[in-house]
Amino acid sequence: MTAENFIPKKYPNSVENGSYTWTSPSNIALVKYWGKKANQIPENPSISFTLNNCKTTTTLSFSKKESDNYFSFEVFLDGEKKDDFKPKIETFFNRVEIYLPFLKSYHFKIETSNTFPHSSGIASSASGMSALALCLMSVEKKLINDVSEENFIQKASFLARLGSGSACRSLEGDLVVWGKHDKIDGSSDLFGVKYPFEVHKNFKNYQDTILLVDKGEKQVSSTVGHNLMHGHPFAQERFNQAEKNLSDIILILKNGDLDKFIALVESEALTLHSMMMTSMPYFILMKPNTLEIINKIWAYRNSTGSKVCFTLDAGANVHVLYPENEAAQVLEFIQNELVTFCQKGEYINDKIGFGAKLL
């Protein structure tokens, strides 16, 4: 399949106005994607857990306008007009216009809200762009009528990727792969696909408590960080490592080997941040309290035999991952020993989810 497959033929229907609301979750990568080619194509494949509670709700209202020479839209976050979001949306519209040729025919009102802090290392761009892509696909479905559920989700994932790479992994769950991989039939650089293989009961309803170490804006955006992989001295070795880790995690997920899962996931998190620290210019998104939490998790695991582990996204916050059967003990550990390292003592209890929903 190529990108040209997503260019629609002439729309048979006409729609004057309407409104759609989608809620779409964030996701947390187990094997990370860091570095991309042109057109939001990943340098390496990735796999993520879809989250349940960390999500974006977006309402897209649209009305036909007289001129179709320009994009017309306004953006609101939590009811407040956000003109500083407009350049990113305009870039997105420019990228996807060829696949959604109705975009200049309407004025759009985009109203969005998150259940978690924006731009703090929880992938708000993933949930936000996937929710917007789904709303736009709902408009196109009205213009076409005959769209299968599979094609709807596939194109929405394709569009979401053009807004934010990891957004293509947020539409379904509970595990999603993005990026072509030899061992995963149907995998693609163009969109995310549901993980197709057997998953051991150990990984069902897996828990993710997100410790909010720093809720502020990141000093270096993910877009800038991805671009710094061009010419990075360790980039190719990193891409090879990710390919191997995705092969390895297939067997881990099938066999339920929690020790190997822990080793792979924590290594992936630290490798992601090591790429940041060895780029030019170099930068660090972890905070002192990020390291304090990691060391506390290691000490707790060594002393108790717990299967708790951590992962990190592109930020300071720590995702504490653990099996459902350890929830009571791990939450007690978090409250007793880790909350003190969170900004204002704040954290979010989350778990594996199963994707976006039309409201």
Score class of each variant (00 low, 15 high):
Asn5Asp: 14
Phe6Val: 09
Lys9Thr: 15
Lys10Arg: 12
Pro12Met: 04
Ser14Gln: 14
Ser19Gly: 05
Thr21Lys: 14
Trp22Cys: 05
Thr23Trp: 12
Thr23Tyr: 06
Ile28Ala: 10
Lys36Gln: 13
Lys37Arg: 14
Pro42Ser: 12
Asn44Trp: 00
Pro45Asn: 08
Ile47Leu: 10
Ser48Tyr: 13
Phe49Glu: 01
Phe49Arg: 03
Phe49Gly: 01
Thr59Pro: 04
Ser61Trp: 06
Phe62Val: 06
Ser67Asp: 15
Glu74Ala: 07
Val75Arg: 03
Phe76Ser: 05
Lys81Ala: 07
Lys81Pro: 01
Lys82Phe: 09
Asp84Arg: 09
Glu90Val: 03
Phe93Gly: 00
Asn94Leu: 12
Tyr99Ala: 07
Leu100Phe: 06
Leu103Lys: 12
Glu111Met: 02
Ser113Leu: 01
Ser119Pro: 04
Ser119Met: 03
Ile122Lys: 02
Ala126Arg: 11
Ala133Asn: 05
Cys135Gln: 03
Ser138Val: 04
Val139Lys: 04
Asp146Asn: 15
Val147Pro: 00
Ser148Trp: 12
Phe158Tyr: 13
Leu159Ile: 15
Ala160Gly: 04
Ser166Ile: 11
Leu175Lys: 07
Trp178Asp: 01
Trp178Val: 02
Lys180Phe: 06
Ser187Asn: 11
Lys194Leu: 11
Tyr195Ser: 04
Tyr195Gly: 02
Pro196Ser: 10
Phe197Gln: 05
Phe197His: 12
Val199Met: 00
Lys201Cys: 00
Lys201Gly: 01
Phe203Glu: 05
Lys204Val: 06
Tyr206Trp: 15
Asp208Tyr: 14
Leu211Lys: 02
Leu211Val: 07
Asp214Gln: 10
Gly216Arg: 08
Gln219Asp: 09
Val224Tyr: 08
Asn227Ala: 13
Leu228Thr: 11
His230Thr: 13
His230Val: 10
His230Ala: 07
Pro233Asn: 13
Arg238Asp: 00
Phe239Trp: 04
Ala242Met: 07
Glu243Tyr: 03
Lys244Met: 05
Lys244His: 10
Ile249Glu: 02
Ile250Cys: 03
Lys254Gln: 11
Leu264Ser: 03
Leu270Ile: 09
Met277Pro: 01
Ser279Ile: 06
Pro281Gly: 08
Tyr282Arg: 15
Leu285Ile: 15
Met286Thr: 14
Lys287Ser: 03
Lys287Gly: 03
Leu291Ala: 09
Ile297Leu: 10
Ala299Thr: 13
Tyr300Leu: 02
Tyr300Glu: 03
Arg301Met: 02
Thr304Val: 04
Gly305Val: 06
Phe310Asn: 02
Gly315His: 07
Asn325His: 14
Glu326Phe: 08
Ala327Met: 10
Val330Tyr: 09
Val330Pro: 00
Ile334Arg: 03
Gln335His: 12
Leu338Asp: 02
Leu338Gly: 01
Cys342Arg: 05
Lys344Trp: 00
Gly345Pro: 11
Ile348Lys: 02
Asp350Trp: 10
Ile352Phe: 09
Gly353Trp: 13
Lys357Asn: 12
Leu358Tyr: 08
